[in-house]
């Protein structure tokens, strides 16, 4: 894994001052029709902390993730990203939060098919109006960091699954988000590649002090995390 010695890298987030966590979920409730999926979920993640969210299918993991990134509105409760309450934001503010404060890593990568690897990484920077030069330098440093500099000008079609996920990782942290949400990031990868991706996640989280909420059903994935939280029937289970 290359270091960031030769190019300018995103600045790591400020160390926690003890009062503002990266993520704070308080008594979150969410229903679909008559079916309540989340029953008052509480969850805290500190800056730089890595938390694995595990649970069986139908436990509400995806719903919780969608609520945290502002895609689905919660019925009750609070979601704070670095102190900003998502439940009080309108659609434009939520979009802005997703652009600036949250990074997302998908199981199916979801790279933009007509953009090269470099352009995919630069894209979030373009969304927040970063100057072209700074964008290029940052993206270059990130591609270095994830070991994809040599494939920077290739389209997603030409990349393997592992390579795509690395690019997606770099994209997710382009704007130095407070929090990265990873939904089964190794679900479409074989174990070897998956391990590499997990290590990258760990490294980036450490170096840039980014909080990570990793949704997985694989206990092996949880090894990079500081702690594991289990969701069962829409509730956070008490730690063993």
């Amino acid at each position: 894994m290359t270091t960031t010695a030769t190019r300018s890298a995103p600045e790591p987030n400020d160390p926690p001052d003890g009062t503002t966590g990266a993520l704070a979920v308080n008594q979150l409730r969410k229903s679909y029709g008559a079916v309540e999926v989340l029953h008052g979920v509480d969850l805290d993640v500190q800056p730089g902390e890595r938390v694995a969210l595990m649970g069986p299918s139908g436990s509400g993991k995806s719903t919780l993730l969608n609520c945290i990134c502002g895609i689905e509105p919660a019925d009750a409760g609070q979601i704070l990203i670095s102190g900003a309450d998502l439940t009080k934001m309108n659609a434009a503010e939520l979009e802005r939060t997703r652009r600036e404060s949250i990074g997302y890593v998908f199981q199916s990568f979801h790279l933009l098919p007509t953009l090269t690897a470099r352009e995919n990484v630069e894209f979030p920077g373009q969304l927040i109006g970063l100057a072209a030069r700074e964008r290029r330098e940052r993206a270059g440093a990130l591609l270095d960091q994830v070991g994809m500099s040599h494939r920077a000008e290739h389209l997603p079609d030409a990349l393997s699954g592992g390579e795509r996920q690395r690019v997606a990782l770099a994209r997710a942290v382009m704007n130095s988000p407070r929090l990265v949400l990873a939904d089964e990031p190794t679900g479409s990868l074989d174990s070897v590649i998956g391990d590499q991706v997990l290590e990258l996640l760990q490294t980036i989280s450490d170096e840039l002090n980014i909080a990570l909420l990793l949704v997985t059903h694989d206990t092996d994935c949880a090894r990079i995390c500081h702690r594991t939280v289990r969701l069962h029937d829409g509730r956070i289970a008490k730690p063993d």
């Binding site: 979009e95 997703r98 652009r99 933009l112």
Partner: peptide
């Protein structure tokens, strides 16, 4: 459609 959905998830507004 899939690409548009990705853009939305990246924070591109309506």
């Amino acid at each position: 459609r899939a690409e548009l959905a990705t853009l939305k998830s990246l924070g591109v507004g309506q």
